[in-house]
């Protein structure tokens, strides 16, 4: 009888220790998973910004004229687009055969605000959301540099004027 009670106590202690270890492991896993989720979200956001860093030179380097235009001018240029501009200003890049606008906007299909690219080439237009962005779009331009800044995510892209380019602001 005493021996059986001893076995029972040993088993109970074993189960308690096992459960304790499981609880510790689960709590470790939960803490790690939430931190990892947070990190992965940041990485995805950064991947969007990296993609934009790779994309923007493709439209900025060949531009003949870089200018900051008002929302009214932008609306007039993209009037047939489904995208609703929300930034007070936009960047207009004039190329030999096309015009590109960069601005913050929202569309019916993508109601989260984003940095949009509107391109008009030989009368054909295209609209693409480059990356999710809320907050403000800051456009700073001097004779030598042009910087595009976002407040959320915090990001600044700067371009130095190249031969044959003009900055208008």
């Amino acid at each position: 009888m005493v021996k059986q009670a001893g076995f029972l106590a040993e088993n109970l202690v074993g189960i308690a220790v096992g459960l304790g270890v499981v609880v510790i492991l689960v709590s470790l896993w939960v803490a790690d998973a939430s931190r990892r989720t947070h990190e992965i979200e940041g990485m995805i956001e950064r991947a969007d910004l990296d993609a934009a860093t790779f994309y923007l030179p493709l439209v900025v380097v060949p531009a003949q004229r870089i200018e900051v235009v008002s929302r009214a001018t932008l609306v007039q240029a993209i009037h047939e687009s489904q995208v609703h501009p929300i930034s007070s200003a936009a960047v207009k890049l004039t190329h030999p055969f096309s015009t590109t606008y960069l601005y913050l906007g929202m569309s019916k299909t993508q109601n989260k605000s984003a940095l949009w690219v509107h391109q008009e080439r030989f009368g054909n237009t295209s609209n693409q959301a480059l990356l999710d962005a809320s907050g403000d779009l800051t456009l700073e331009m001097t004779n030598e540099t042009f910087c595009l800044g976002l407040s959320d995510p915090q990001w600044v892209y700067c371009h130095h004027r190249l031969p044959g380019q003009t900055h208008e602001f």
């Binding site: 380097v61 060949p62 531009a63 003949q64 030999p96 190249l162 031969p163 044959g164 380019q165």
Partner: peptide
């Protein structure tokens, strides 16, 4: 007028 000018950039 004595100043170099550049235009028609194509890349």
């Amino acid at each position: 007028n004595g100043q170099w000018m550049v235009k028609d950039r194509q890349v």
